[in-house]
Write a protein that binds this DNA or RNA. Sequence first.
DNA 1: GTGAATGCAAACATTTTGCAGGGTG
DNA 2: CACCCTGCAAAATGTTTGCATTCAC
Lengths: 161, 161
Amino acid sequence: MKESKAVSPPIDSRRWFVDELGKYLARKNLKQTKQRQALIDVFLGAATHVSAEELHSAARGAGLDVGLATVYRTLNLLVDAKIVEQKQFSEGRFVYEIAQPGGHHDHLICLDCGIVIEFANDEIERLQEKVAAAHKFKLTSHRLDLFGHCQKQNCERRAGN
Amino acid sequence: MKESKAVSPPIDSRRWFVDELGKYLARKNLKQTKQRQALIDVFLGAATHVSAEELHSAARGAGLDVGLATVYRTLNLLVDAKIVEQKQFSEGRFVYEIAQPGGHHDHLICLDCGIVIEFANDEIERLQEKVAAAHKFKLTSHRLDLFGHCQKQNCERRAGN
DNA sequence: GTGAATGCAAACATTTTGCAGGGTG
DNA sequence: CACCCTGCAAAATGTTTGCATTCAC
């Protein structure tokens, strides 16, 4: 149910996603199964950030009889394959998002309604590299989450988040 | 066991900590108990980032017979009082750090040895505000964690992390 | 047919909560 | 002496794992 914007939406990333997964499965001698295919379809059709539980009920709702364990196993597989990223905005549970072929982005999260806006800022990234270099670190990844309150009129209404 | 540096260490923050806690307890009509006092002493003497479990065994090791539930309750109280901050570097468990009276800082984490270096960068903070403003967000907090590999010779040895 | 994948339930790890008894202001 | 705090054990939560069965290649 959550919206997301400000970074190019994954319109043509479906092909990329399926290709990468195929390559990964082949490389690891793993198999293409009905459940994996279906979960991927559900995932691609779902919101930008989904939890395992949400993916599970979405799949069930779509008529697929899949176990929660399989959802977790599939998500972990996709993370291993580096085509999905595991995030944690609200404490206590992971959400997953489809990795963007090229770019990295960070998140701006509304504490009231839970909306997650993605953004990218090269200048910040550059400064991060500078900080890392100053401490003799080789940077491999980072996480930048900004928390605050959005100014939407319909905000705060969604108390569920 | 983890080291930490690059931001002024909490040398004189003990007074501040105790004062703030006293004020908070008074304001909320809460009580000063042996366990709270002792836990605070252990915390102040411990590493910069401790988990509830670590604090618990440290307390036990120091001869205090305290329950894990009380450790959690006390930590949550300190977080509510805003004199301790809850963080999450490695997934699955929280670590707690004593809030710095004045300043905020971010973290640089070595994926091999687990060392956490604290740093502050005003320029990055400023850019974050700019990003938030561009999306009409009122920023309340943020989280910036840089992950990478430190270049210490004794790194990677500590496989426990 | 071999090995991988699935579903279920049980196991796990971390944090929270209910309750009876003890302590603080 | 009212109310908070504690310890313990049980519950709650989110994720992983063991096992027997089914399925893909």
